[in-house]
Design a protein around this nucleic acid. Structure first.
Length: 488
RNA sequence: GGUACCUUAGCCGAGUGGCUAGGCACCGGUCUGCAAAACCGGCUACGGCGGUUCGACUCCGCCAGGUACCUCCA
């Protein structure tokens, strides 16, 4: 904690020391989901990555405002000229009001995020609730001369912008290359250049979601919402803007361009991007159709899943990789995460029951420092986890009586686990104990008591029969020195 | 085609110019009537070829393979 926090800034492509614009306040904007389908494993990554950062900022006593939007309008399928709004399309197919689709999937998104133990953002604005702000921003850009209106639609003039500013500063792209490589679009484009992006689109007659504006009855362009809402809730300049790496271009690049013209600066000090989750080495994505929804993961209802995985297993799985690395999904990896987490949680139980000695050589302060160092080094959660596993060895040794710990260090050790495992990594013990069904508990306890008696009488046939039958119905029996434990 | 990134033991994954990350699996042991669970121990990897260096998995070059973005995507 005494050391400085370093975060990788996509804009500079370097780790930079985090210095808030307005200490002790931190403003953080993260691109949220477009709610036209269930959240999948890929959505869990930014949610958990920025939850980790949010939690860490809070732990460091910053006053954080975390804004994560919900995109409910303006996100088009295919290219901007002939695409259909994603929400609108879903609504048309399902014969629903678009906002019914939005409500339904937002609710489901929130349920899944809750299960993953992500803290609720400070503000969760919706694009459709900020049409006025987006229209105002479009006006500013038009007035500044960096947008043009044509047939009721307004487009950002990228070529003009690039003459004075650098379009591509975030993504490392060069406009000339973009011009040379832009794909030929089918149909007639009304834009001056293919790489110009829409600030406002005139709605076609069949388009469901539309609002009045000075230019037409229409809807805002996708890139605009984040700029408009970011400014509204965090100011014209704020600390952090995050999202998945796939949003770097064009989405975030366009945001910078809009901001630069509308408010005179690029608005964001640190751009932070999480990497993708892959499956068989390929990005898991909606368009590729290779995604696994969180609901499927939690229930095991997907052919590629060998079993169901708990939300905490998913969270742990994600935290075991650094957020800027790709993370490959597999049953094996998930099962490894599940077992590792269980061992860690068991270690916490042991930690809570071990007693301090008058002396001991374990240095818990050193562990604490190492954990902070890892967090400060661009949120290196896998290293924090590795340190916690290392400490586990000591905890078990103390429990076994082969090592000692003094009172001071025991308290620090407990503090380290509380701070890092629970507060910052946001993990919790979610093994569903059978305690939720009193009757089942009594019955199984009674049966196992009978088994104990059979064992005492060396009637192993009976004792094995009981154990086998319980195993069949999914109850695992663990014999202890003088008793038993079981779990479903 | 352009741009960027990646290649670490059976699997997932950190990291560093010299000091065997960690987890899972596997193998051995302790415990147990036998198991299971738990615990202890073992398993010493960095795509290929050159170069720089006293020393490279780590820096540089080339080659091979892979991925991402360039269109909606977290």
């Amino acid at each position: 904690m005494q050391n400085k926090l370093f975060l990788y800034n996509s804009l500079s492509r370097k780790k930079e020391e985090f210095v808030p614009l307005n200490f002790p306040f931190v403003g953080m904007y993260v691109c949220g989901p477009t709610v036209y389908g269930d959240a999948h494993l890929g959505h869990a990554r930014p949610a958990i990555t920025f939850d980790l950062l949010f939690r860490y900022f809070k732990h460091l006593n910053y006053k954080v405002r975390y804004v994560r939007n919900i995109t409910d309008v303006g996100h088009l399928e295919n290219d901007a000229d002939q695409g259909e709004d994603k929400i609108g399309k879903k609504a048309r197919i399902e014969k629903l009001e678009p906002m019914e689709v939005v409500q339904y999937f937002s609710d489901r998104y929130h349920v899944e995020m809750n299960k993953l133990n992500t803290l609720t953002p400070s503000i969760e604005p919706r694009a459709s609730g900020h049409i006025i702000e987006q229209i105002e921003m479009t006006k500013k850009i038009l007035e500044a001369g960096y947008a043009y209106e044509i047939n009721g639609s307004v487009y950002f003039d990228v070529e003009k912008y690039n003459k004075k500013y650098n379009y591509g500063k975030l993504s490392g792209r060069v406009l000339e290359d973009l011009i040379a490589n832009t794909r030929e679009l089918d149909g007639q484009s009304e834009k001056r250049n293919n790489f110009d992006f829409a600030l406002w689109k005139k709605a076609s007659p069949e388009h469901i979601m539309k609002w009045p504006s000075p230019w037409s009855l229409g809807f805002p362009g996708w890139h605009l919402e984040c700029s408009a809402m970011g400014h509204k809730y965090l100011g014209e300049k704020f600390d952090i803007h995050g999202g998945g790496m796939d949003l770097l271009f064009p989405h975030h690049e366009c945001e910078i361009a809009q901001n630069t013209i509308a408010v005179g600066e690029n608005s964001v000090k640190y751009w932070i991007h999480n990497n993708m989750i892959t499956i068989n080495g390929q990005k898991m994505g909606k368009s590729l159709g290779n995604f696994i929804t969180l609901d499927d993961l939690f229930n095991g209802t997907n052919k590629v899943l060998k079993k169901a995985y708990s939300p905490m297993t998913i969270r742990f799985f994600i935290l075991q990789a650094h957020y800027r690395s790709t993370l490959d999904f597999s049953n094996e990896a998930l099962q490894a995460a599940e077992k590792g987490l269980a061992r860690l949680m068991k270690g916490v139980e042991t930690l809570n029951k071990i007693k301090a000695s008058t002396e001991g050589k374990f240095n818990a302060s050193e562990l604490k420092t190492k954990c902070y160092d890892a967090m400060n080094d661009d949120l290196n959660s896998p290293i924090v986890i590795a340190h916690l596993f290392d400490a586990l060895k000591t905890i078990n040794a103390i429990d076994a009586g082969t090592e000692n710990i003094d009172d001071t260090n025991l308290n620090i050790l407990k503090e380290v686990y509380n701070i890092f495992l629970f507060d910052i990594l946001g993990l919790k013990n979610d093994n569903q104990q059978a305690g939720n069904n009193e009757m089942l508990k009594e019955v199984v306890d009674m049966v196992l008591y009978l088994r104990m008696q059979a064992k005492a009488n060396k009637d192993y046939a009976t004792s094995d029969f009981i154990r086998n039958e319980l195993t069949k119905i999914g109850i695992t029996v663990k014999d202890k020195k003088d008793g038993f434990e079981w779990e479903v």
